[in-house]
């Protein structure tokens, strides 16, 4: 099973915009675009699972809001510091949308 939530990322959004353009020019059908998106779901789930090795830790000043619905967590964190070895990025607000990693395995 491949999650569709990665469609809502830079890579997924740019793909959807590209498909929209091609549909508007009449070069592909919406049905074909749908197939491309399904393939994207597979590819991105696969790539994250296989190709990414980076590990990040983070510490949040505050968990502002949390929501658990249909096995999806939505978290709003304030004052979050992400750290990878010696480098870090600090943001005052971040939203995390997380699907269940166990049922997502394939």
């Amino acid at each position: 099973m491949s999650y569709q939530l990665y469609r809502n990322t830079t890579l997924g959004n740019t793909l959807q915009e590209s498909l929209d353009e091609l549909i508007q020019y009449g070069q592909i059908t919406p049905g074909l675009a749908f197939k491309v998106l399904l393939q994207f779901d597979k590819s991105i789930n696969n790539a994250l699972n296989q190709r990414v090795k980076a590990r990040v830790t983070f510490k949040a000043g505050k968990l502002n809001t949390y929501r658990f619905c249909d096995n999806v967590w939505t978290l709003m964190l304030n004052d979050v510091e992400f750290r990878e070895v010696h480098e870090f990025v600090k943001v005052d607000k971040v939203k995390i949308v997380a699907c269940d990693g166990k049922s997502g395995e394939f």
């Binding site: 890579l11 994250l48 590990r55 990040v56 983070f58 949040a60 000043g61 968990l63 964190l77 979050v80």
Partner: peptide, 19 residues
Amino acid sequence: IMNMRGKDYVFQKSNGDAE
């Protein structure tokens, strides 16, 4: 996949805590 301050990052694992 993280998008922070307009930049993308990816991670295999990320652990964190908050209150």
